[in-house]
Design a protein around this nucleic acid. Sequence first.
DNA 1: ACCTGAACACCGTTCAAGT
DNA 2: ACCTGAACACCGTTCAAGT
Lengths: 179, 179
Amino acid sequence: MAVRADALRNRETLLAAGRALLSRESAEIAFEDVAATAGLGKGTLYRHFPTREHLVAALLQERFDALTTDAEFLLGADYPLDAVEHWLRTYDRYPVSARGLSARFGEALADRESAVSTACVPMKQGFAALLARAQEAGLARRDIDVAELLAVIASLPRLSRDEDGSSPFLDVILRGIRA
Amino acid sequence: MAVRADALRNRETLLAAGRALLSRESAEIAFEDVAATAGLGKGTLYRHFPTREHLVAALLQERFDALTTDAEFLLGADYPLDAVEHWLRTYDRYPVSARGLSARFGEALADRESAVSTACVPMKQGFAALLARAQEAGLARRDIDVAELLAVIASLPRLSRDEDGSSPFLDVILRGIRA
DNA sequence: ACCTGAACACCGTTCAAGT
DNA sequence: ACCTGAACACCGTTCAAGT
């Protein structure tokens, strides 16, 4: 049950390499290259992260956690709908950047089986609570699937981005959510 | 300048093979397999379709054409906003199905350089005209990027689909479009 | 003018051998 | 218990030789 020190260190090295690759290339990452950049064997990479999805999930974990905290905090806000919109803007602005990553993210969020999907369950629940409050106040529509909403926003084409990193199309969606 | 008969026939065979592959597999298509299924050499495939995008564009052409015709027809409708919504529902329901295809489609639509993008210029223009009419009537918002709107709808997660093939999330977007 | 398929390269994945 | 890298497989792409 004890985790060897070198195993832990390797895991960190792999994550660092993954982070570097994801932020550099706008396109796709050669999974193999993560191992190479980390200076480790391919087998080690596969041992720690069975699929590239698992690596992505681990990399996004911090962001998920931050967003979960945000949601919990906003639960105490005065205006439920404002809280929902504020959270979604933050969510959208989060530089899931790195092109392919956001697309993959969107697909994964909608697919309940995926590694990323389970990694962000708390975040989803946090936002669902926020939304529920707005719905109960009669401010938001009830026919909204949280997973789909988040997936759509995550995969908003990253082309037309404003300077602050937000997507102009988000306004259309926010407006569509209101009751 | 004259096209050889066998070249034309091969092109059709390749398209048929591509169609078959795209409708069967829910996931991705091995580009190579298109040539194999068609019973032709890889070189022939590459001659006709330099990238898999070009093949996809050719396959989608009929649909684009049909949608362009729809848009032209609806330009004569009585209620501009209804016309816009009707057209978008048809667009959404079009079984661009085959999983990966719709995602690829969404990305391509947003990317002006892509082969798919140029293939659907008339369709985009047709819809843009419909939308402009609704905007002039004060029924639709003006801050809408046509390419982005179509790209988003095309990449709506294909998971939660109603029986008729439409996405429930489309309602959120339609509502968000209204002035 | 077009077609073919061998040949090369790249990348994902596994696993026997090592520590 | 974990790491390594050779080895295999698959697929994309090119191109010299053929018709």
